[in-house]
Design a protein around this nucleic acid. Sequence first.
DNA 1: GTGCGACTGGGACGCTCGTCCCACTTCGGT
DNA 2: ACCGAAGTGGGACGAGCGTCCCAGTCGCAC
Lengths: 198, 198
Amino acid sequence: MSRIPAPERRRALVEAALRVVSQRGIAQATTRAIVAEAGMSLASFHYAFESRDELIDELITTVVAREQEAVLPEFVPGGGLAGILEAGLVRYIEHLKADPEHEQAMLELTQYALRSPERHPLAVQQYERYAELAERSLERAAELAGATWRVPVAQVARVLVAFTDGLTFTWLVDRDDAAARAVAHAAADALSRMADAP
Amino acid sequence: MSRIPAPERRRALVEAALRVVSQRGIAQATTRAIVAEAGMSLASFHYAFESRDELIDELITTVVAREQEAVLPEFVPGGGLAGILEAGLVRYIEHLKADPEHEQAMLELTQYALRSPERHPLAVQQYERYAELAERSLERAAELAGATWRVPVAQVARVLVAFTDGLTFTWLVDRDDAAARAVAHAAADALSRMADAP
DNA sequence: GTGCGACTGGGACGCTCGTCCCACTTCGGT
DNA sequence: ACCGAAGTGGGACGAGCGTCCCAGTCGCAC
């Protein structure tokens, strides 16, 4: 094995861990499985990280920080605010269908963090980040539609996050695209009513 | 230990397993933890069950079959359909707050089932059951409000399940009651628009 | 009361887990 | 050229896991 400085190795291990969690679940993300995925020896793991817990924590923070605005809204001519929001959610569904394992991994990491008191803040952070991204999308959508939010955007954002979560979870179970679109439609409808049209 | 016939022991073990999963998560629900919770010896476990997997499967089916219509709607004078639905969802929030660990356990069991191909059908069954319960609640709500569903109720039910799931998951993370009520309000609003008032 | 099948308890098995140790190799600065 | 620090590899550790075995004990039918 070629020599790799520790910080770079940390990054490689985090990436490998994400792949293992996505493909096999967090319970199967053992030090040995991660190291095998990264093509390293077991000793390298504990040279780069104090413990498995330290890696999992870094995995969560890394992956949350990297989260993109997946549902950045685009203008839909004639659709109004509801149409723009629905189009955004439909695009999220496409993203979900393209990489279901990633979203499943996110959900699993959240639930994992929820189980230990010292990791709970990580889950809260994760959802604050989601809310932040949702907020930006909602502001952009209102701007495109020429509408203004009647309710504080931060509050609307939390509703959007909850709707997206439910959409994701149920789709992961039943893989029913039509049902997901129905949820997207209903959610967009509900959200749009929290704004005033110009 | 007094002598207990195997079928009864199975039931006791399933109950103990549910308590362990609720309190400590499915990863910690080891055979030893479960028998300790049930106050039995380890050998009794494999006298009643072939394997841990068999118990987990039975735990999931048991707990799904037992699921109640938690959000059975009541008439809310002057509220209309949206009001009735929102009241039902608010009652679900109360139920969630009263026993968060149980709902968390449900979510965990679903995600666990999602991870192995032979268990995936259990998760699907679980959500079919949820949809069925949601359907009955929606029919009852429409009846109380004197409204009729414009969209097939089964389809509305899936949207309700998704909304409830999102509500549950996000509340488990942030424990924000106000945000949960906002989601309930928006969800009820969206659902009520899938029906025609009389 | 006696026999047999149902049930019990303790201990042990083989395996995998996270972690650690230590001899070894490589690299950059002098 | 060399020396100390940085990085590597294999093997081992103790603990915990699911599962199994087996000698023992109970209760019911006869």
